[in-house]
């Protein structure tokens, strides 16, 4: 197991390296002069030069890259053009709302998705299966912003049960989590159905049935345990889509999180914030994938000896 962990850890180093280069180059790919962008349109040429000096943009590119990386390790990723505050502070205050939103979305999505998947697999080709799978493909096809607005329309505007948007109390989490998690629930349902169906064909399931175990025990005790292995991987990967999805959902629900900050920053061309957010999202995603890989290796010994 230890060898496997080390192998995976070494494996992500080149990815981290290339991702950091990609994000570093980001500023240089934006059309126009970044120093001019920071100094403002009315700044004199001299002011622009001063800003260029301050940001180190006049140094050779490899030195700039080095500064960029050492800045990340010191928690210094520049200042927001829009507010002038350090990017680190801007992001830190937005991190938790996004984290909890994705967390709760994931929790309900996995539970409901698994339930639908198991019911569909055991009631194969019956109406429960058709209903579940049609619901799942609908969940994948539904534009999240549309679903969010429909939920707001019904539960916030008409019934007045839940807040329209923003983050004030625990009730604020309900509608955004439902919206954000629905796509993941759909994917989990489809995936656990096909995974469980494969497993239920296996010999040891037949043995379980033959020795008189009740169907409930066979499915939940024997089948699901083994069907879970690929589902875990799939679910982990869905975390990335939740992170991406949160960008849209946060805009719909005026959520004070990272996603809305990103969209505001793109509109304002606040590139230090965009850069830091891209980096953070990518790091989170790489980290989650790593954890998923490790869990997978732990659950499935075959993988470790490849």
């Amino acid at each position: 197991m230890l060898r496997y962990v080390i192998k995976r850890l070494i494996g992500i180093i080149p990815i981290l390296f290339f991702v950091s280069i990609f994000i570093f180059l980001f500023v240089h790919l934006i059309p126009g002069d970044p120093a001019r962008l920071v100094a403002g349109q009315d700044a004199t040429l001299q002011d622009v030069e001063v800003v260029r000096q301050e940001l180190g943009l006049n140094q050779p590119i490899h030195i700039q890259y080095f500064n960029f990386i050492s800045g990340i390790f010191q928690g210094d990723v520049g200042s927001s053009i829009k507010t002038g505050r350090p990017v680190f502070d801007e992001i830190a205050s937005r991190f938790m709302p996004t984290f909890w939103l994705t967390f709760w979305s994931m929790i309900w999505a996995v539970m409901v998705g698994l339930l639908i998947g198991v019911i569909s697999a055991t009631k194969r080709n019956k109406w429960q299966d058709y209903l579940g799978m049609f619901g799942a493909v609908s969940g994948i096809s539904m534009p999240s912003f549309w679903m969010g607005l429909l939920l707001i329309q019904v539960f916030a505007v008409q019934l007045g049960w839940l807040p329209v948007g923003g983050l004030e109390s625990w009730q604020s989490y309900i509608l955004p989590s439902i919206t954000l998690g629905s796509g993941v629930a759909a994917v989990v349902a489809r995936f656990s159905r096909s995974s469980l169906m494969d497993i239920l064909k296996d010999d040891y399931i037949r043995t379980g049935r033959a020795k008189g175990l009740n169907e409930h025990k066979v499915v939940w005790g024997h089948g699901l345990k083994n069907a879970m292995i690929p589902v875990v991987t799939m679910t982990g990967l869905q975390f990335g889509f939740l992170l991406g999805g949160s960008i849209v959902i946060e805009t719909v629900f005026s959520w004070p999180g990272l996603g809305r900050l990103l969209i505001d920053s793109v509109a304002f061309r606040d590139y230090p914030v965009i850069q830091a957010e891209m980096l953070l999202f990518a790091l989170e995603f790489i980290l989650i994938n790593l954890i998923v890989d490790l869990i997978y290796g732990f659950l499935n010994p075959q993988i470790r000896y490849d």
Binding site: F18, V19, F241, L242, L243, I247, I263, R269, F281
Partner: peptide
């Protein structure tokens, strides 16, 4: 494949938003 890994490192719609941040 490493280039693909890098592109895959940006979850969901984020890569598209990043590219639009560059291109407008």
């Amino acid at each position: 494949m490493r280039i693909c890994d890098v592109l895959f490192a940006f979850p969901g719609i984020l890569l598209a938003i990043g590219i639009i941040a560059i291109l407008g």
